[in-house]
Simulated scan of single mutants.
Amino acid sequence: MIQPRRFDLVAAFVLGVPVFLLSVVVAVLSVPGTRAVVLVAACLVAHVAFVFRRDLRGFAVIGAAMGVQAAVTGLFMVLPTVVLFPLALFSCTAYGRPYPPLVLGVAGAGLAAARFATDESVAAARLGPNPWLLLGLLLAVVAAAWGFGLYRRTQLGYLALLKERAAMAATQATLAERARIAREMHDVVAHALAVIVAQARGGRLVPGRAPEVLATVEETGRQALTEMRGLVGVLRAEPDELAPQPGLADLPGLLDRTRAAGLTVALTTSGTARRIGPGAELALYRVVQEALTNTLKHGGAGAASSIGLSWTPSALEVTVTDDGRGRAATTAPGHGLAGMRERMAAVGGTVHAGAAGERGERGFAVKVRLPYQEGVA
């Protein structure tokens, strides 16, 4: 894309060469002698200043050059260089300060009309038009150039606003992606470490199960590393290189790894399954994973968990309960429950977590409700 200053230079050269040469010819033929030299010099200054027409100082120089032409002869309107004035007024209004060009333009139109009206050669030759008509014409030219300049200025402001909004949207998208990856990393690492800790505890209490415990630890660690590589790969992979994210079909594998950690887990399903979208499936998978992780960490020895998927006519309801230490889990520090709510809120669902029993002495329950979205079949 051509730079503004380079464009101004090219435009001044392309427009300036033929117009300046024509103005020289007209000046020499119309006003011979020293005044022709002054007119040619004023035209040359105006064409050089036209390169800097976006700046108020460049526009002022062009206006001064037009004033010199008006002072030298009342017939200044016949010089083609005068076309630079409305063009410079437009550029200065659009890219510089909007109101000073209008003031200079109105003042220049008044002075030009007055000079034309008081020119003896014009009066002697009885050349028209009427000075008031000329003033109206010049003011109309100034108003048109200024109005187009304001319109272009508004366009540029709107484009700048769009670019700013696009930059803000990109920043927000980056922050949202970072938050999403942070939640994914939390779920993956927390679940893997909970399984590993549970296995290590079991291996210490039952030394004879050491090979089985180490195999489970190895498999859990390998699975966690695979998921972490997938998350990091999202940051640099091409769209067609991205591996699919886990969903409801991957719940059996998650339950197998959880059972290997020593937690008894049962899964029940009711109703007719339907598609809910990959984003919603990933969110539900992570919520179940986080709930099982909390049970492993806070449920205590001998705790068992059950997962229920109920496909109702209006929503998918998922319930994860355990018979562990109950309220102890609700007071445990961390961001697990907050992450669950954020995940489900992003896909239009809700999460309620609390004691499983009426008295809340033992057991903890996480209840998720995800209404079906229109257009997802």
Rank of each mutant, 00 (worst) to 15 (best):
F13M: 15
P18F: 02
P18M: 01
A27M: 07
P32F: 01
V38K: 02
V45S: 09
V45W: 07
F50T: 00
R53T: 08
G58Y: 09
F59N: 03
F59M: 04
G67E: 04
Q69Y: 09
V72P: 11
G74K: 02
L75P: 12
F76H: 12
V78N: 04
R97P: 05
P98K: 05
V106Q: 01
G108D: 09
A112I: 02
F116H: 08
D119G: 11
E120D: 14
E120G: 09
A123K: 13
P129Y: 00
L134I: 09
L134V: 08
L138C: 02
A140P: 06
A140L: 12
A144V: 15
F148M: 15
R152I: 07
L156V: 02
L156G: 04
L156E: 15
L162Q: 14
L162F: 14
T171N: 12
T174H: 13
A176P: 09
E177H: 10
M185C: 03
V189K: 02
L193M: 09
V197Q: 03
A200G: 08
A200E: 05
R201E: 13
L205N: 07
P207R: 01
P207D: 00
P207S: 00
V213Y: 04
G221K: 02
L225K: 06
L235Q: 07
L235A: 04
D240T: 00
Q245G: 03
Q245N: 11
G247P: 10
L254G: 01
L254I: 12
R259P: 06
G262Y: 02
G277F: 02
G279N: 15
E281P: 06
A283R: 09
R286E: 15
Q289P: 02
T295R: 07
L296A: 06
H298Q: 08
G299P: 12
A304N: 11
L309D: 10
P313I: 13
A315K: 09
G326T: 03
A329H: 12
A329E: 14
A338H: 13
M340K: 08
R341T: 15
M344H: 10
V347H: 05
H352S: 14
A355K: 06
R359K: 07
R359I: 14
R362F: 03
V366I: 13
K367N: 10
K367V: 13
R369E: 15
L370A: 07
G375T: 03
